[in-house]
Amino acid sequence: MDLANKVISITGAAQGLGRAMADSLAAQGAHIALIDMQPDALQNAAVELREKGVKAEYFVIDVTDEDAVEKGFANIANTFGQLNGLINSAGIMRDGMLLKVKDGKVVDKMSRQQFQSVLDVNVTGTFLCAREAAAQMIETGSDGVIINISSVSRGGNMGQSNYSASKSAVATMTVTWAKELARYGIRTGCIAPGLVDTAMAAQMRPEMRDKFLQTVPLRRLADVSELGHAAQFIFENDYFTGRTIELDGGTRV
């Protein structure tokens, strides 16, 4: 896919990875539909992207709200006249141990709400946005690509029962949709990063950050521009579908 004049929607686009990937794709001439829950940050992002000479519009959508997602993607298709791509970047973390035990007694448990809230955004939100994006791609006759953001944690990580489960599901859905949607000219891809140098990573305690870096053979965090480059590869390589790119500096958890 040549990204010039293609329309790409990105969830979680107000900041962090989503915002960085919007910059990367806009630099290739793609028009961007920014999706998030932060109207002020979205508006600022849209203004900055337009300065690159592309069309950029923003849409305040809760990705866990089925009705809002349906209406939002219909609005995107009506606004741009087509839809060629989706990056499911919206996601949350609510880390915690399954159980906390002291002196042989269970003193705390991961709550159902703590578990379910992560699945609601990371799994259900990804599902709803992909479903509606695919529907609009088909109905507007647009060849398209759906990219999901997984994580190295999909293999299972201590203290992340909810997050690991959600990111494993995201990678699996990528394979399923590749098989289902190829007949309509829609490809899928997945990126599984390790820790990325974002505002969230900057909030880590220095000792925890240093400990994590000891597990990374390249001894550094991923740069957001490197995720943008990976997304660009998936869009531009027309024989890539249903697979996950591990962008973790060699990390294994």
Rank of each mutant, 00 (worst) to 15 (best):
I8D: 02
A14I: 04
R19M: 11
M21L: 10
D23Y: 13
S24F: 06
G29E: 02
I35T: 07
I35E: 11
M37D: 05
A46T: 08
V47G: 04
E48L: 13
E48I: 09
L49I: 02
R50M: 13
K52C: 06
E57Q: 13
E57F: 13
F59T: 02
V60C: 11
I61R: 01
I61V: 12
V63W: 05
A74Y: 08
I76V: 13
N78T: 13
T79W: 11
F80C: 05
F80Y: 15
Q82M: 13
G85D: 04
G85T: 10
I87H: 10
I87L: 15
I87F: 12
G91T: 06
M93I: 13
M93F: 11
F115M: 07
S117F: 06
T124A: 12
G125C: 09
T126D: 08
A134P: 00
Q136A: 07
Q136E: 03
S142E: 02
S142C: 00
D143I: 09
I147P: 01
I149C: 07
I149H: 06
R154M: 15
M158E: 12
Q160V: 01
S164I: 05
S164A: 15
S166V: 10
V170Y: 03
M173D: 01
K179T: 08
A182K: 14
R183N: 07
R183E: 14
Y184D: 14
G189R: 04
G189Y: 01
L195Y: 13
D197I: 01
T198Q: 10
M200N: 06
M200E: 10
R205N: 11
P206V: 03
M208L: 13
R209Y: 05
D210Q: 15
L213G: 00
L221R: 01
S225N: 12
H229K: 14
H229R: 14
A230M: 04
A231V: 09
E236Y: 03
E236V: 03
N237F: 02
F240A: 03
T241L: 00
R243Y: 07
T244I: 06
I245R: 01
E246D: 15
E246T: 10
